[in-house]
Design a binder for these strands. Sequence first.
RNA 1: GCCCCCAUAGCCCAAUCGGCAGAGGCAGCCGACUUAAAAUCGGCCCAGUCCGGGUUCGAGCCCCGGUGGGGGCACCA
Length: 825
Amino acid sequence: MSSETSETEATYDVVAIQERWRPVWEDLDAFRAGTAAPGAEKRYALTMFPYPSGDLHMGHAEVFALHDVLARYWWLRGYDVLNPIGWDSFGLPAENAAIRNGSNPKDWTYANIETQAASIRRYGVSFDWSRRLHTSDPEYYRWTQWLFQKFYERGLAYRKASPVNWCPNDQTVLANEQVVGGMCERCGAVVTKRELTQWFFKVTDYAQRLLDDMEGLKDTWPERVLTMQRNWIGRSEGAHVEFAIEGRDEPVTVFTTRPDTLFGATFFVVAADAALAAELVTAEQRPQFEAYLEEVRRASDIERLASDRPKTGVFLGRHAVNPVNGERIGIWAADYVLADYGTGAIMAVPGGDERDFAFAQAHDLPVVHTVQPPADFDGGAYTGDGVTINSANDEIDLNGLDVETAKQRVLGYLESKGVGTGTINFRLRDWLLSRQRFWGAPIPIIHCPSCGEVPVPQDQLPVVLPDLEGDELKQQGGRSPLANATDWVNVPCPRCGGDAQRDTDTMDTFVDSSWYFLRYISPQDDTQAFDPEGVRAWMPANQYVGGVEHAILHLLYSRFFTKVLADMGMIDFQEPFTALLNQGQVINQGKAMSKSLGNGVDLGKMIDEFGVDAVRLTLVFAGPPEDDIDWADMSPGGSLRFLQRAWRLAGDVTSAPGADAADGDRDLRQATHRTVRQAEELLESHRFNVVVARTMELVNTTRKAIDSGVGGADPAVREAVEAVALLLSLVAPYTAEDMWERLGHEPTIGRATWPTVDESLLAQESVTAVVQVMGKVRARLEVSPDISEADLQEQALAAIAAHTEGRAVRRVIVRAPSLVNVVVG
RNA sequence: GCCCCCAUAGCCCAAUCGGCAGAGGCAGCCGACUUAAAAUCGGCCCAGUCCGGGUUCGAGCCCCGGUGGGGGCACCA
């Protein structure tokens, strides 16, 4: 039975609407950067590009929905918007999958990318697809390698042997940033230490600038991200102090933040696993030391991190000399001193440091206080401020000084003696970037027996990965699988032509993602990494949206890259991301979604059931963007019903497109214009959930107007419904597009124009003034918004005369035009 | 252990400058439509803002002290 569906009976068919508009949008390709009106201001909307782990999940759906609100809003406001998408497509899961099923990481990766790309297109995000990139494309990693060489030329990429973090599960080394609580950030395995020669980026050279430039981000980045970065960089001011060592020509330098306590240094500690410990130990003490070192090496980082464990250590049989009082103090090896922080050796002041005190107690060492503790102090180490005591020699007397002054005084003394100097120490370590894995950008260096490290000539980049698959990807003896590809490894030295070998490590995937936002600007350029003109026009990105899990790793590295490129003169800004928005997590029933809990919510199923728009709307409406969303508390069905109500409004509009709203219903017009103005303010402050609420309100108001006499022919109704469609287009683009068509417009609403607010419609004709007596509301008055304070007071007092009768009016607070509070005595 | 954020109706959340606690949604209840149900539409109920102090004419908002939840740091000398 076929029947014609009349406009009023038309049904809102989610699936049909999606199927209808997706191909139309693809043909229109409406969101290409550079297509705004000439002279339009440029805006760069950036979202953290996905790793192709499988299909999209709820987390992606949330970021993309939030991110797209701003990108689409910017288009409607007439900006020229750059909103690119790509894939962070190098990385371990591809390789592990390939080993499991005997295939090629490339096939797994690119198949997943296609799956995700199709899902993203269906999801209706306003990406500029012409800028799509994948970090695993040779055309991309060619420039990652090129950048590596630029860093190398500047001495910012170097190789050194050191104890490094090793993940026994992933069979590769890790950067410090990738070790969380002694465990591999990726897979959770307990990380061990290995002495290996590895490549590093000299991020420590930029520690101070990375810290200082956060000042300019403090209003536009989440405070907690800045705090985390500050903690990670870990700047501390102090001094280097030299201690003479008996039986050794060279003194040993220690770092301390408390040089004022030097007179209280009663022993000396060297990190047990530092080379210095093995050097200093006497023959007599060596057996004990070796045994202890063995014990320390066996302990995992997790055990070491437990702060309440006993302070262990062994005496090395040797003494140092305290430079201020000439005392011989014993040198110990212990594991509470870290080999790779400061100089790996400390002066121990048990009277002023809890850890040193604990060690002194455990090994029966003397304790001297150098700051007078308060009378009621009953602890061992006093770390607070106070008056310096026990700190004088023939040349200097710190006694009586406060801590800060004592620091300055002793530093001057140490400097004059040439045994100490003020210094700043950072917790941040250099970025270990090499990985013993296959699926990454090969490090473009050739090792020649006679020439040493030789960069691959730039005209020979990229160094393309060989085709390995299945078992060929397995490591042997902790070496990269690339070492197995002998044809690939053995090459002539570019310098001398002799037999040489390629470096077989690949780069940390965080190198790939440290500059992708620059590549988006000229992704097809095969002559340079990025186009400087384009970068000047678009960067820094106006808004970056992504998860807080990258608070340190990706964001710190990208900031570092940006500063290095600025130093090279390739870009003219210091920070890559002007503003940062961290969306919350999508959880379920109070817990993170996980396979083991079986509480995962399938995005595809949700979309099948409720449609793209309802899912997007639900995620945006759930709450403030940075809050977690508990899917169990959400009702996509409610979102769908709302979209349906909104959509139906379009069928009630009977005026022609372009109808002049000027003579339309004034109340409805006011509601429309106030809603638009509020939306503008709310969008600026990222309160997208409230924008949705305001849109719902306008839908309700419009519905009532239509049904209660204003009628569908009133041009104010058209104005209201068009505003609804435009507001909705930020969140529910399919529904909005369909409404737009029913309203008689051409696609696409995504490139339509944001309504112009008529300021005269924002003014209120009258407002309700509240009259309080002693803070309690006793009367309400309808008054003009520009009523004078005197008039309002007069009217108010008259209105509440009954309440003040017999009582003296002591004070009247007037806040025209909204409130009067009468204080009676 | 130290630092930061949060707490508003059964639930998710609003509330410009310190000025009427409620905008929106979910759930619930009643009604209309229906043979009935679903869907839809209309209406209604619901907290005095985690607890205890303080400042103020006036506090959800500011200050102090707790409780509960979330996050960060944690042998970095």
